[in-house]
Simulated scan of single mutants.
Amino acid sequence: MLEMLLTKSLIHKLSTLSPQIQASIRISSSSGGPLFFAAICDRPASYLNTPLTVVAAGLSKWLDIYSGVLMVRVLLSWFPNIPWDRQPLSAIRDLCDPYLNLFRNIIPSVFDTLDVSPSLAFAVLGTLGSILNNSK
């Protein structure tokens, strides 16, 4: 019922446009017809690019990139002969180790060799990312 009302309202508004614009709209929406406009109207209000959603989207993307860099750091830690004093490895270490050290202080190593703190670090990043994705 609401979709039909919105569609009629949009068709009425389209009828006031110039014939060239009407023709271009008919061509571009010929595959979906009025349902195309109804689908646009069904988008949530949070779809708008408010400053908060833009910041949330940026932070979410940054967390994705940081998770990738953190994954590289964790995978490289399995190789004992990696020269961590050379670039770009030292930059990766300097970027990731302060965050990992927060969790290394909370969770001790298992059998003094297996460090399980990155699993908690990834869980926290994933939780923050899902909160930011839901706020968009």
Rank of each mutant, 00 (worst) to 15 (best):
M1W: 08
M1V: 08
M4E: 12
T7M: 09
T7L: 09
K8W: 08
K8P: 02
S9H: 09
S9R: 14
S9D: 07
I11R: 15
I11A: 14
I11V: 12
H12P: 02
H12T: 10
K13H: 14
T16D: 14
T16K: 15
L17C: 11
S18T: 15
P19F: 10
Q20D: 15
Q20R: 14
S24Y: 06
S24F: 02
I25K: 05
R26Q: 11
R26C: 13
I27K: 13
S28A: 10
S28W: 07
S29G: 14
S30D: 11
S30G: 08
G33P: 05
G33V: 05
G33A: 07
L35K: 15
F36M: 04
F37K: 03
A39D: 15
A39Y: 11
I40L: 15
I40T: 10
R43W: 09
R43H: 05
R43E: 09
R43A: 10
P44A: 05
P44E: 01
P44N: 08
A45C: 04
S46K: 12
L48M: 12
L48D: 03
N49H: 07
T53H: 07
V55R: 01
V55Y: 04
A56L: 03
A56N: 04
G58L: 12
S60D: 00
L63F: 07
L63V: 04
L63Q: 02
D64V: 14
Y66P: 00
Y66F: 07
S67Y: 06
G68Y: 04
G68V: 01
G68W: 03
L70Y: 04
R73M: 03
V74S: 00
S77H: 00
P80Q: 06
N81V: 15
N81E: 10
W84Q: 02
W84C: 01
R86Q: 13
Q87S: 03
P88I: 02
P88N: 08
P88M: 03
A91F: 15
I92S: 02
R93G: 02
D97T: 07
D97A: 05
P98L: 11
P98W: 05
Y99L: 00
L102T: 09
L102G: 09
N105L: 10
I107V: 08
F111C: 12
D112A: 14
L114R: 07
D115M: 04
V116R: 04
S119K: 08
S119V: 13
L120T: 08
F122Y: 05
A123L: 12
A123N: 01
L125P: 04
L125Q: 06
T127L: 15
L128V: 03
S130I: 13
L132E: 04
N133P: 01
N133F: 06
N134P: 01
